[in-house]
Amino acid sequence: MDATTLRRAIARTRLAPVAAFPKRLARVARHDAKVIRTTTRWLFTSREHHNYTYDLTKLSRQHLAWFVSVVCDVPVKQVRAYLDEIESDDTLRGHIEQATAGSARRGLADRQVRYARRIGWYAIVRATRPAHVVETGVDKGLGSCVLAAALLRNAAEGHTGRLTSLDINPEAGYLARTAPWSEVVDLVIGDSIASIGALDRPVDLFLHDSDHSRAHERREFEAVEAKLASGAILLTDNVTHTNVLAEHAERTGRKFLAYRETPRDHWYPGDGIGVAW
């Protein structure tokens, strides 16, 4: 009896779980060893305590390109060009590195620039050319800079737009307070629901990235609904934790898709992009 026949015979007996245990243990051990290496390296090389940054795996980046292509109805080749564009923007990258190093909060921020799913935000803005983007939740302003960079590129091509960034923390957005990015950003400090209610022009693209509780996320989408321009796009950074935007899309007759990122060499499982259009 050869080895393959023997394994198949054992698989049909009560000894099957015992025989499979060493192989199962080896797989778990390899997985755990990788997790321990990754988490240990992060603990001693990163300063971040929340809102983690990282690069995407090659496969995750490819899937993101197709996600944006479908949502925005543009060729995937063009989307890939947009992703390359933001990642090769050395001026923006240098600014973020310098602003981070000079910030009073530099003890809790990594100087290395890693955009993760935010390159998807960039590509969506480049593809749709919105006149008015609104984001809730700014933190350091990394996402604000990415969105502003897309708006500046659009403006250079004859399609001007502005970003309204809403945050309750008066210290938020320090990365986006430098020209030329600050020239297209209106930073508003205050409660997001009240700030949405005070918007004085239609919203073409709305991004929820503030308080990630289900109740608050739902309130933001309900509040912005009356402010939306025709054909507006809604985004959420909370799609891996709630179904709020999907439910809102169904109630309002929109389509919905979700993308989940896969971080490269990071212990965090990643976030995603939810979109309704």
Rank of each mutant, 00 (worst) to 15 (best):
Y54M: 01
A156I: 01
L151S: 11
A156R: 00
H31G: 07
I233G: 05
V28G: 02
V239I: 15
W121A: 07
T178Y: 13
I124A: 02
G197V: 01
W66S: 15
D90V: 01
H241G: 11
H212L: 14
E225S: 07
I96W: 01
R177S: 14
K227A: 08
L228D: 03
L152Q: 07
T252G: 13
I119S: 12
L234A: 04
H212S: 15
T128I: 11
H49C: 12
R219A: 15
K23G: 13
P130T: 02
S165Q: 02
S213M: 09
L92Q: 01
A148T: 09
A215Y: 11
D265A: 15
S210L: 13
V185M: 13
A104R: 08
V71S: 01
A19D: 07
I124L: 12
G107W: 02
S230V: 03
D139M: 10
R254A: 07
N243D: 15
G143H: 09
N154K: 00
E87F: 08
G107V: 05
P269F: 04
A65Y: 03
D186G: 12
G94I: 00
D110S: 00
R106T: 06
G120L: 06
V74N: 00
T100Q: 00
K77P: 06
E217M: 07
H49G: 13
E97H: 05
G274W: 06
G274A: 00
L59N: 04
G158I: 05
E135G: 05
H63Y: 13
L64K: 03
R260E: 03
S192M: 06
A246K: 14
F221L: 04
L235K: 04
A20Q: 07
Q62C: 11
R80E: 14
I273A: 03
W66M: 14
E222T: 13
R201D: 08
D110V: 05
H208D: 09
D32P: 02
L92Y: 04
A16D: 10
S103H: 08
T91Y: 02
E220L: 09
D73N: 04
E222N: 10
R214G: 10
V185T: 15
T40H: 08
K34V: 13
D186I: 12
A16N: 08
A101T: 12
L56V: 06
A198C: 00
Q112I: 02
D2N: 14
A131E: 08
L228Q: 00
P75H: 05
I119K: 14
R37L: 12
G158F: 06
V203A: 05
R111C: 06
L108K: 03
R41G: 03
D265G: 11
K34Y: 11
S46N: 14
R264L: 15
A148W: 07
A20K: 00
D139R: 09
P22E: 09
G107Q: 02
V125Q: 02
V71C: 02
W121N: 12
S46Q: 14
Y54P: 04
V138T: 01
Y268L: 13
N238W: 10
I36H: 15
H95T: 04
V74P: 05
L6A: 08
L83Y: 09
I119G: 11
A109E: 08
L43E: 14
T262R: 15
